[in-house]
Design a protein around this nucleic acid. Structure first.
Lengths: 218, 218
DNA sequence: GTAATAAGTTAGATACGGCTAATAAATTTA
DNA sequence: TAAATTTATTAGCCGTATCTAACTTATTAC
């Protein structure tokens, strides 16, 4: 059984891993707001538990097992977020903090019940995939809105790096998952997009916003 | 902000306090399964935080503040138990363990939402009162079933010291809160009671069982 | 009322998960 | 490629919450 602290390291490593599965001590340190020497010593501990591959001065990698453990924590996090939104009436901008705590609860029954009550959801309220009971994740290939063309019709699929403020911004524009929008115009100078959708006919979205929105092309 | 460990001490003290509000180091130690010296040192810490009145070799007492903190943790525990039973479909014998973990979650919103969804319940699934937001508890005066007389008609109101096994025993006899039963006969020799209720016409309950059932006389 | 027992405290150790300061290795810059 | 910078590690310390062993105070039994 891993401690709460160990779980947080595993989760952070999972999130920060690049495509070859590598993480730096420095990035991990910044992400967790824990100094580098503490990270190093935890890496040694996790290595001794076969959750991490560790060699001095080399990039860190989660072991197969570590990856699974991490995915299962993320599963609990995302199931919780979905439960908070769907069954308890929270807004998608309110659930991260709570899920951050609930994800550490040790009770398979508790999460199995959530899963069932939600009818085995595939995605969380921000469009991120929920890993299955074995820790496997199905990634859908979405496009960044910023990569779409003028004239494209798209459907909102997920938000990247969903922070409180960003989600509140989206709320204020009445943008939510599943929303269909049309790209009316792309400003060449700064890549600002003018989009229209049911409730708004010419909303302007900065490139910073468009890079954080994942969409499905229609 | 109190640590999870501190919260557990406060809760234990609250539960173990006798009518004059006193607890022994020894009882606390046994209840928490933590050795006495550890308890003593935590008591000093809690005393320095004005949560406990502590004097060497004297019985321990929660301060006014400590009592409130404890009651608020118990509030979270009991709200959670109610939520698990009413909104998630758990049995009353399954909820204690989960609530033991959920009660430590720091999020007023989370518990406020539960409270609202449950329509501000007064009692948990075992009939124990749920403290209000200020930590105040309204105690109802119930009688132990064991103190009732032959011929009395009573309504099941609460269970004392509800353990897994006891609750499962009650399940097996189809006994639940709100159940109305009549005391048909009391065996003088060992105080076993023969009771009848809707689904059973002459169920025999040992004195050990009867002492753990609280009822309302009709 | 004294001896035996139980309850409580002190002292000192341990594991965990942090930290700073100093050092070493790797990477970037010039 | 040598110097400067960044990244990572080592060594040693700290606070929390636990423990055991030894000691003290309170209670119980005779």
């Amino acid at each position: 059984m891993n401690s709460l602290v160990e779980e947080n390291y595993l989760k952070a490593m999972f999130t920060l891993s690049n495509d070859s599965g590598e993480v730096n001590v420095n990035d991990l340190s910044k992400h967790l707001d824990i100094k580098m020497p503490s990270v190093t010593s935890m890496m040694k501990k996790l290595a001794s538990k076969n959750l991490v591959h560790y060699e001095s001065y080399k990039p860190l990698r989660l072991s197969k097992n570590g990856k699974k453990e991490a995915a299962l924590i993320i599963r609990k996090h995302r199931l919780t977020e979905m439960f908070l939104v769907e069954k308890m009436g929270f807004g998608w901008e309110q659930v991260h903090e709570i899920a951050e705590q609930v994800e550490h609860i040790k009770s398979p029954d508790f999460f199995a019940k959530m899963d069932k009550l939600l009818d085995y959801p595939q995605f969380d309220p921000h469009g991120s995939p929920i890993p299955d009971q074995n820790g496997n994740i199905v990634w859908k290939e979405y496009s960044k809105l910023s990569e779409c063309q003028q004239g494209d019709s798209v459907k909102m699929a997920a938000v990247i790096n969903s922070s409180d403020e960003f989600l509140k911004f989206l709320n204020s524009r009445e943008i939510h998952l599943g929303l269909k929008m049309k790209i009316e115009f792309v400003e060449q100078f700064d890549n600002t997009m003018i989009v229209s959708y049911d409730k708004r006919s010419s909303e302007s979205l900065s490139s910073k916003v468009c890079e954080r929105l994942l969409v499905e092309k229609e």
